[in-house]
Design a protein around this nucleic acid. Structure first.
Length: 596
RNA sequence: GCCGACGUAGCACAGUGGUAGUGCAAUCGAUUCGUAAUCGAUAGGUCACGAGUUCGAAUCUCGUCGUCGGCUCCA
């Protein structure tokens, strides 16, 4: 436990102390430090509200001021159980009801572990520690929010109230933390998305179903263009598939009934309606459709590797409580492709995919990410994982080799693989600190066989291909959600929804004509330029363009007009001075083309 | 899905039982200006939706929809 975690954990004890002073009947469960603070779970008939915070914090301050020592006491299991039964754990003393959660916890401590209790002032708690020397060491703290949580995270257990707080060595550090939070809130893609008119949601359309406004659609289409160019150069072929499929396909793929909970309920036509009582599902993934395309044509080893790509629309019925802006939605478009190859080709193909990831991350300047390499657990072969031990070993070794040779930092997570093969997930963090998988790269050596996919090999035998499932740009929704926060809405020129705004100083005819002409020239070159020829003052025009996060502002005043120049201003960089008009136009067009 | 909080003009918010408000944005007019807010006027609301309590509801109660915070860490 780090020093800060120790301090926060101690603060959780102080929180419990304070709550017990106000409500002696409170029953406490677990109170660990967490990423940005700590919490304590408790059961209490009184429903704690934010209005109670001031009162609780008051009591906490008293406990901290008292400078009570944290006293560590080793006890035997029997003593600990007896104390819990007498209601002396997570209590101030004098309570007779057993400390029921602590009793349960102590009974689950494995044999041979040292059991300790900690005391600060009147408060005694079962706790492994460690703690700060005395309560006075907690320099600054604040209760932050409330939530509920099931005891031990299991929904069959009672629901407890969870009080969250944070604590720091001193006030300065805590204030810095809250300032950082404020800044993070400004980057929140939900806020920027509304302000910049990128996307929206509508109750009548449905929760988790984002609609792309024109400026957001620019982002979508620029990403698609990048993907299409990159994939074309890498030998991919584009395909298109319907958004729905019959139940039989998902039976074949093995997604039903295993995945049915995450899919929208099926559409079914009755016989009176002229239908044939067949169920159709909205697709939750593109793989089965692509497998059908592989199987649609006779395949030879000469066709491999075959790389089929599609920005496929998928629909997943995520639990309502899981929905979160663009980051977790119910309709999404995936940067999907399936690469069918032989075992011999696998390593080369996998490496190429990995290089594509790194190329993208470089373009976007994404450097804070973790690659999670999920492998199988040999003990679960035949249940959670397909029973092909030699293929698991082979593909996992190949994936590991590619990662090591590329010098990529990764964490290996056993028992997390897909049932059909190992995978790599790329994890990133949203502005408010939530972790998301932004991209995925999976090996599949099982499903092609379920679909009876084969190719005719050199020796005239039918063989089953391996399949690599990859989505380096993830889904439009999550990737753009992430990019909005990554750039705080200040997109690079090639991505910016409004790349250029041409504006005049004043609205006299010659200026307006020059501005219109420049605007038309830029539009003719495919540059997303807008025009501000209103009679507002130049300061006001600049202000509005800056707030709209327009990438480049081109200002034309009388002086520029006479010199055949335009004044260039870049968002966030300020005035860059007057330059010849032709030079400015060429520079813009080049920078956009090169995604500079 | 479960627990809790929240839902007032395009956006940010005020309004706790008695005439629905402020700022920005919008529209119109004036202003003719050199790099982050020129001035004035006008318009904009089924206070999420539905039911109930009340002489009277944005405000109190219940339901529905939606949004947000949590629901993995463990004494």
């Amino acid at each position: 436990m780090t020093e800060l975690e120790t301090l926060r954990h101690s603060c959780a004890h102080v929180l419990a102390t304070a709550i017990l002073k106000i409500w002696p009947e409170a029953q406490f469960a677990a109170g660990p430090p967490v990423e940005n603070g700590f919490y304590y779970d408790l059961e209490l008939p009184h429903r704690i509200t934010p209005e109670d915070f001031a009162r609780i914090e008051e009591e906490m301050k008293k406990e901290i001021k008292a400078n009570n020592r944290f006293e560590r006491i080793e006890v035997s299991r029997e003593e600990a159980i007896a104390m819990a039964e007498r209601g002396e754990l997570a209590a101030l003393g004098g309570r007779t009801e057993p400390s029921k959660f602590k009793l349960d916890i102590v009974q689950h401590i494995p044999d041979g572990e040292v059991i300790t209790i900690y005391r600060n002032g009147q408060f005694t708690d079962l706790c492994a520690g460690p703690h700060v020397s005395h309560t006075g060491r907690i320099g600054a703290f604040k209760l932050t929010h409330l939530a509920s949580a099931y005891y031990k995270g299991d929904e069959r257990n009672p629901q407890l109230q969870r009080v969250y707080g944070t604590a720091f060595k001193n006030k300065t550090e805590m204030e810095a933390y809250f300032t950082m939070l404020e800044e993070a809130k400004k980057r929140d893609h939900r806020k920027i998305g509304r302000e910049m008119e990128l996307f929206c949601f509508d109750e009548d359309v449905g929760p988790g179903l984002p609609l792309w406004l024109p400026k957001g659609t620019v982002l979508v289409e620029e990403l698609e263009r990048l993907a299409k160019e990159t994939e074309f150069a890498a030998g991919y072929q584009r395909v298109r598939t319907p958004h729905i499929a019959r139940e039989s396909m998902y039976k074949c793929s093995g997604h039903l009934p295993y995945y049915a909970d995450s899919m929208f309920p099926p559409m079914e036509f009755s016989e009176e309606e002229g239908g044939d009582s067949v169920k159709y599902y909205l697709k939750a993934m593109n793989c089965p459709h692509h497998h059908k395309l592989f199987g649609a044509v006779q395949r030879s080893y000469r066709d491999l590797p075959l790389r089929l790509a599609e920005y496929g629309a998928c629909y997943r019925y995520e639990q309502s409580g899981e929905l979160f802006g663009l980051m977790r939605v119910r309709s999404m478009q995936m940067n999907d492709a399936h690469i069918y190859c032989t075992e011999d080709q696998f390593e080369q193909e996998f490496r190429a995919v990995n290089e594509m990831y790194l190329k993208y991350f470089k373009i976007f300047g994404i450097d804070k990410y973790v690659m999670r390499f999920s492998t199988h657990d040999p003990a679960k072969l035949g249940q959670k994982f397909v029973d092909q031990p030699e293929l698991w070993k082979k593909t996992e070794d190949m994936v590991r080799n590619v990662l090591i040779r590329s010098g990529i930092n990764y964490v290996e997570v056993p028992n997390e693989a897909a049932f059909y093969g190992p995978k790599i997930d790329v994890q990133v963090w949203s502005a408010i600190g939530r972790e998301f998988t932004i991209a995925t790269n999976q090996v599949d050596f099982a499903v092609p066989a379920r679909f009876g996919l084969t190719y005719k090999d050199r020796d005239n035998t039918e063989k089953t291909p391996l399949c690599i499932h990859r989505a380096p740009l993830g889904t439009h929704e999550r990737f753009i959600g992430f990019l909005i926060e990554h750039y705080a809405g200040n997109f690079p020129l090639w991505l910016a929804p409004e790349q250029v705004r041409v504006m005049t100083i004043g609205d006299e005819d010659p200026l307006v004509d020059a501005a219109k002409d420049l605007h038309a020239e830029l539009r003719g070159l495919g540059i997303r330029a807008e025009l501000d020829i209103s009679s507002d003052k130049i300061n006001g025009k600049i202000q509005r363009a800056e707030q709209a996060k327009v990438h480049t502002m081109l200002v034309i005043g009388k002086r520029d007009l006479e010199a055949g120049a335009v004044s260039v201003r870049e968002h966030g960089k300020g005035n860059l001075g007057a330059k010849p008009r032709a030079e400015v136009v060429t520079a813009l067009a080049d920078a956009i083309k090169n995604r500079a």
